[in-house]
Amino acid sequence: MIKMPDKVNAKHITEILDKGSIAMLSESELNEIRVHALECMSCRMAYEAARLSAVVIKSRAEAAIEPSPFFQTRVMAALREQQAVESVPAMLRLWRSAKVLVSTMAVTTAALAVVSFIQPAQTTTAPEQTASSYSAYSVIMDQDADDQMSYEQVLSTIYEDDDDAR
């Protein structure tokens, strides 16, 4: 248990220390603390901690921060930028922010339309178009041309030429 040489105890000391800045304590309060701290280790520690805390907090508040030489230029540039943004009509600002999304959606829709309506028609006509570019002779005699064609294309090319011959 803490010794009580005066009418103060440890709790009372810490209450005094936390109540206000140590710089604002009256001389009688400081004396009261110092006398008590002589015989009470925990209060001595609390007083020392409060004193040092007050020193560093004061240093922090007094630290002068010099702005960089370009600070004013930067602030003015930011201000002009902000004013430029505000002078543009609301619909235009909306369009600027949404144009990428809208463009992407339009391109996607167009691509889907192409895939849905145009591509199937091309697929059905493709074998005939390809087959007509080869002759029955080239299919039979030219190994390279044969490799590039499907089995159906080979057959259709050969029989097409037969039909023509008849």
């Binding site: 810490t14 936390d18 001595r44 520690m45 020392e48 901690a49 805390s53």
Partner: peptide, 25 residues
Amino acid sequence: AFRARKKVREAMEKLLSYKGGRVSG
């Protein structure tokens, strides 16, 4: 302010006690 002062003082006390309690009287 009271709470902040108390917390800072306690943090400082811990630092001082870590340093071996070399506190002036």
